[in-house]
Design a protein around this nucleic acid. Sequence first.
DNA 1: TACTTTTGTTAACACTGTTAATTAAATTTA
DNA 2: TAAATTTAATTAACAGTGTTAACAAAAGTA
Lengths: 201, 201
Amino acid sequence: MGIAERKIRQKEEFRTSILEAAWLQVLTDGWQSLSIRKIADAIEYSIPVIYNHFENKEAILLEFTKEGFQKLADVLQFAKTQHAEPSVQLEAIAHAYWDFAFEHKEYYQLMFGLGIPACDRVNQVEEMKTMTMVMITTIQDAIAGSKNSDADYFLKYHTYFSILHGLVSIQMIEKAGKPDAGKKMILQDAISGFITSLVVR
Amino acid sequence: MGIAERKIRQKEEFRTSILEAAWLQVLTDGWQSLSIRKIADAIEYSIPVIYNHFENKEAILLEFTKEGFQKLADVLQFAKTQHAEPSVQLEAIAHAYWDFAFEHKEYYQLMFGLGIPACDRVNQVEEMKTMTMVMITTIQDAIAGSKNSDADYFLKYHTYFSILHGLVSIQMIEKAGKPDAGKKMILQDAISGFITSLVVR
DNA sequence: TACTTTTGTTAACACTGTTAATTAAATTTA
DNA sequence: TAAATTTAATTAACAGTGTTAACAAAAGTA
């Protein structure tokens, strides 16, 4: 009897219709305003049906996070296969990563938990400039006393700051209670690489 | 008459008592569970009084964001003054930045909008490993064909990934509608620096 | 057709930020 | 000092949120 078969097919359709409605919500209003109620409203069912398909809201977000990482992996894999030389591949992967992030902001923000309010907030924090200035002046000094005295200090500041923030936030996102013995090695590695490329021609 | 004076002093005390109660909440339960109601409960006043001192919840968060950036700026400035050579200063600043982030996680997460749920979520996403593998294998290839064949590929992967994520998320947090003409230059700069330090001895 | 299982709905609970209306207190004026 | 006025604080509500228990309706089985 194909009736059990039809049922799991219907269940599957229901599931994807929930995800589609959710995704539509996200595209128009962002993650912050996604709600179970709105999804239920969009699919024209009552609220509790959603809990027959997903344990809770977090499970829905998890689903999209998985989707995001799978898409990103595909994109990176494709970029890699377009080239033969490993160092060129690394460059291509980097650009593909960048493009993915900005072409699919919604995915990226969810995947790495970038709470969107910070964007509006941080831009009205005058105190950030104080921190920025410490970094910039030092970089200017370093450039002045180097063999690359024509280097773009603002570009280099951005690179420096990005490396720092990237290291920290990746480290925070990953398993919290890891042995932090060799943690700072990553920092040391990235920073000495940056400084070398800054100072040495 | 010093009665108006006393009043603004009391108002100031009230304000800081709100911030103190909020901070205590954050330390024990994190940003996510901070609520106006809990603050009101802690200071033993009714809810609306808080709105006499802060326009809304966001304003309270903004206050702490400012505080965080000021503290970070101070820490970096101090680290800088401990050394004379700019390149050494850059290294010291990097370490100070790192230490601040992990010694004041609450501040850092608020400042850069690191939505905490992602931590729990991302760690149960198997698909992340697919992406990780694309990066790691490429880096292994690059190392194998380089003059640094003894380089730690896992360390280098972490550096690579962190740089990418840092670049992207800083770019996302900063003013959204900026001219994206020279945006990719930052990426190019950071990545070519990394690759150079990876391939060349 | 009668029974059982699955599916869906209503209504509520316990929260959240925010605000209008109202009462209590403090200060100023007569 | 007593009355009027301004300031401060409270209660109660609105409009949301995620989640779930109790119940009704539909579908499948005997």
